[in-house]
Amino acid sequence: MTQENNGHNYCVMGNPIAHSRSPAIHARFAQLTGEPVRYGRLLVPLEGFEQALRDFARSGGQGCNVTVPFKLDAARCAHEKSERVLLAGAANTLVLHDDGRISADNTDGLGIVADITRNAQVRIEGRDVLLIGAGGAAAGVLGPLLRERPRSIVIANRTLEKARHLADTHAQVARETGASLQASALQAITGDFDIVINGTASSLAGAESPVPASVLRKGALAYDMMYGPAAQGFLDWAARNGAVARDGLGMLVEQAAESFAIWRGVRPPAAQVLRELRAELQAAAGR
Rank of each mutant, 00 (worst) to 15 (best):
T2D: 12
T2G: 13
Y10D: 11
Y10E: 12
V12P: 00
G14P: 01
I17V: 12
H19W: 03
H19Q: 11
R21P: 08
P23I: 12
R28P: 03
G34K: 06
E35W: 10
E35G: 10
G40E: 08
V44R: 04
F49K: 03
F49V: 07
A52K: 08
R58H: 15
R58P: 14
R58L: 15
G61D: 12
G63D: 07
N65C: 14
F70V: 04
K71Q: 01
K81T: 03
K81S: 01
V85C: 03
G89N: 07
N92Y: 05
T93I: 04
L94Y: 04
D98A: 15
D105I: 00
D105G: 04
L110Y: 07
A114S: 12
I116P: 01
V122S: 00
R123W: 05
D128S: 15
G135W: 01
R147C: 11
R151M: 13
S152M: 10
V154L: 12
R158S: 11
T159D: 13
T159L: 11
L160Q: 08
L160H: 10
E161S: 15
A167F: 04
A171M: 03
A171E: 03
Q172A: 13
A185E: 12
L186P: 10
A188G: 11
F193M: 08
D194E: 07
I197L: 01
N198L: 01
G199S: 06
T200K: 02
S202K: 05
S202D: 08
V211Y: 06
P212I: 07
A213D: 11
S214Y: 04
L216D: 06
A220P: 05
A220Q: 02
L221G: 01
L221A: 01
D224Q: 00
M225E: 00
Y227N: 07
P229Q: 15
W237E: 10
A239E: 09
N241T: 03
V244E: 08
A245C: 02
L249Q: 10
V253D: 00
A261R: 14
A261V: 10
R264I: 14
V266M: 09
Q272G: 00
R275C: 06
E276V: 04
L277M: 15
A279R: 02
L281K: 04
A285I: 04
